[in-house]
Simulated assay, not measured.
Amino acid sequence: MVHIHVMGASGSGTTSLGRALSEKLDIAHLDTDDFFWLPTDPPFTTPRDAGERIRLLLEETRRPGGWILSGSALKWGRPLEPLYDLIVFLRIEPELRMARIRAREAARYGDRIGLGGDMEAKSGEFLAWAASYDTAGPERRSLAAHEQWLETQTAPVLRLDSSRDIDDLLAEVLLHPAIAAGAVRRRR
């Protein structure tokens, strides 16, 4: 069983790489947003109770086989930390990351985030929050908080530039000794 946590800023490609790894390794893909947020319309407006989100996530991680967890579980995901075989930390230039986020938001929500749309204000707040990732302090999801958290982890950390092609990122993760050893154990 392999347990990989793929993390980074919003827009850095954690979900995309998590899905690709899940498919390649034929194991579950779990995304922190699915546990952190209650399903609402508009989405991402109501956080789930912390105890409930960790209960749901731990329930999913107990299924047979390994898993990939993408996203960020800072502060609330501590019970998972001893399970990680590898932490993949994605970084990307802020301008490219924000361009990705804007394109993703437009594709997902279209006119709803435009002028006068029902998600205009919430989208603006999200974009401002996402843009401040590289400069915000450690009190919230930020580069500083991620770096601080990474210093406390016992699992190996693989740092990748996510502006690279996803196939290159996938290959680099799969070649990491912590994962290559797990893949060999699974094939036996």
Results as ranks from 00 to 15, higher is better:
I4W: 05
A9Y: 03
S10L: 04
G13W: 10
T14W: 08
R19D: 02
A20P: 02
L21W: 09
E23A: 14
A28E: 11
A28N: 01
L30D: 03
T32Q: 00
F35T: 03
L38D: 05
T40A: 02
D41P: 00
D41W: 10
P43E: 00
F44S: 05
T45Q: 15
T45W: 02
T46S: 04
R48Q: 07
R48A: 01
A50I: 14
E52D: 14
R53W: 01
I54A: 09
R55E: 12
L57Q: 04
E60T: 04
T61P: 01
T61Q: 02
T61N: 02
G65W: 01
G66N: 03
W67K: 01
S72R: 06
A73E: 04
L74R: 13
K75N: 14
R78E: 15
L80W: 05
E81H: 09
P82E: 11
P82T: 06
P82S: 08
Y84C: 11
L86E: 09
L86Y: 09
E93P: 10
P94H: 02
L96E: 15
R97Q: 14
A99N: 07
R102L: 09
A103T: 13
R108A: 12
R108I: 00
Y109L: 00
Y109S: 01
G110I: 02
D111E: 13
G114R: 10
K122T: 14
G124I: 11
E125P: 05
E125C: 06
S132V: 04
Y133H: 10
Y133F: 15
A136G: 08
G137I: 10
P138A: 15
R141Y: 06
R141H: 13
S142W: 07
A145E: 06
A145Y: 08
H146I: 08
E147V: 13
W149T: 12
W149N: 10
L150R: 13
E151F: 00
Q153H: 14
T154I: 03
R159P: 03
D161R: 10
D161M: 08
S163I: 05
R164F: 02
R164H: 12
R164W: 08
D167A: 14
D168R: 09
L170D: 14
H176M: 13
H176F: 14
H176Q: 12
I179Q: 01
A181C: 02
G182D: 01
G182L: 05
R186H: 00
R187T: 01
R188G: 08
R188M: 02
